[in-house]
Amino acid sequence: MPQNPTAPEGAVVLARDVHVSLGGQPVLHGVSLTQPPGTVLALMGANGSGKTTLVRALLGLVPLQRGSVELFGTPVARFRRWSAIGYVPQRSSLTLRNATVGEVVASGRLGHRRPFLPRSRRDKEQADAALERVGLSGRQRDEMVHLSGGQQQRVLIARALAAEPQLLVMDEPLAGVDAENQQAIAEVVAGLVSDGLSATVVLHEMGPLAPLLSRAVVLADGRVSHDGPVSGVPATPGHETDELSPPDGGRAFLTQPVSPDHHHDDRGPH
C-alpha cells in the first residue's frame, strides 16, 4: 500500500499520514495521497469511510491530529492563495433561503474583492462566464429554492469557477442529481479538465464522470484501500442506496434545518 508517496514536483494536493478525529472518534487513520497537476482524482469509498472528512482535511476545514497536507506546495495552515481553489461542497451544507443564482455565484468572487467596495467589471464578467459555462446563462435572478437539485449543483460549480481556480474540489457533485444533470455536470468538468484544471472529486459512484478520472483513491474505515487506476477500483457495498438524495428532488433541504453533522459521513460533530 503506498502510504508514503514521494512528493513529485508541483503536486497540487499532497497529504502525508493524515489522522483526523471528529468528536473524539478517529475517522482517518494515516491517509496519504498525492495529486499531480492537470489530473482528476476521485476519492471514493462506502458511507462512513471518511472520504468527506478527508476532503475537508485537505482544505484545512478540520484540524489534523497528525500528518500534513500541502496545497500547491504550501502547508495548508500557511496557504493563502485560496482563489486558486474552487470548492463545491455538498449541497446539504447550504442554508440559502431566497438567495438568487446571481448572488450565490457572485459570492465565489469574494476572494478577489476588497471589503466595502462594489464589484468590479471583472467580477461581474467572471461570474457571468461561470454561469454560462454550466449552462445557466440568464438565470441570475432566479431564486435557488426554485431550482432542481441538479441545477443547484451546477450553480455551486459556477460559484467555484467564478474564482478562476486552478483546482476544483467537489464533494459528491452527483448526489441527488438526475441523470440529465449528471451528464451536464460531467460535460462541464470535461471541458474544464481539457482547459488544464485539476479536480479532486469525492464520489459515491463514478457515473458519467468515470471516463474523466485519472486515478482513484478508495477509503475503507479511514484507511486507503486502493490507490491507482480507476479500472482497479473494487466494488464497494452500499452504492445502490444514496442517502443524500431527498425524495422531493432536493428542495427540502432549503427549507428545513439541516444537521451540520450531515456532511461528515455521519461521524458526529466536528
Binding site: L59, L61, S83, S93, T95, A106, R113
Partner: peptide
Amino acid sequence: LGLSPQLFAVCADEDHARVLGL
C-alpha cells in the same frame, strides 16, 4: 450593509467562505 456580500457568504455556507479565504 457594507460587508453584506461577505456576511452573506459566511451565513449561507461557512465552509465555502473559509475556502474563499474570508
